[in-house]
């Protein structure tokens, strides 16, 4: 959990990223590309640690981001990621992207539901899940999918601090608790 100053700093970066995306007129695309990049970061601890390692030269870390995003994402998206990494906040990049997506969804009067699953959800499943969440909680949500093999099977949905865990992993953990 980030402390108060870190939270303010992450919020500040998120507002800046969102403002740039709006100014470029490609907010939705930038959000989607940032979400996918964050998903890639979550799946690779080595990549996260490399971008956060202050011992590695900034130029090298920027070159890594350009290699990852160059030609695969909008220039604005690549520039925003480079901005954060160049500022030495690579360790907070995932949090900044999440905060950016949360603020964008809040601007549309929606919440972000981060859905982790072992395999990618289909568009139909995403739509049905959004409807199911609205039916059960009354919240309008935007689905952000995260492919996480550690889930093993099933789905884990996070909406803010609320977690709806229907994963095989959690059932295995319950079984492990019962055995231990």
């Amino acid at each position: 959990m980030a402390d108060r100053s870190a939270s303010d700093r992450i919020g500040g970066y998120a507002d800046a990223v969102l403002a740039v995306a709006r100014a470029e007129g490609a907010q939705a695309e930038v959000e989607d590309e940032l979400a996918r990049f964050a998903d890639a970061l979550r799946s690779s601890d080595e990549l996260q640690s490399t971008l956060a390692d202050s011992a590695i030269d900034v130029e090298r870390r920027l070159r890594i981001t350009e290699d990852l995003l160059g030609g695969r994402a909008l220039p604005a998206t690549a520039a925003l990621v480079s901005l954060v990494v160049g500022a030495g906040r690579g360790g907070e990049l995932v949090d900044i992207i999440d905060a950016t997506i949360d603020r964008a969804a809040a601007g549309r009067n929606r919440r972000v539901a981060r859905v982790r699953s072992a395999v990618e959800l289909t568009a139909d499943q995403r739509a049905r899940l959004a409807e199911a969440i609205k039916a059960s909680s009354g919240l309008d949500v935007e689905i952000q999918t995260i492919v996480d093999p550690s889930v093993v099977g099933g789905v884990v949905t996070e909406i803010g601090d609320d977690v709806i865990d229907g994963s095989v992993r959690s059932r295995l953990r319950q079984m492990r608790s019962g055995l231990g």
Binding site: S117, L129, A135, S136, G153, E158, V163, G166
Partner: peptide, 28 residues
């Protein structure tokens, strides 16, 4: 893939049914 799809669909049905049948809710 079929089992994954089945699990996901079952999860969606559970959420629609207010989180029953194996799903768990946590958080504040």
């Amino acid at each position: 893939a079929d089992v994954h799809r089945s699990l996901i669909d079952g999860y969606i049905d559970d959420v629609a049914g207010a989180g029953t049948n194996g799903t768990s809710r946590n958080g504040g």
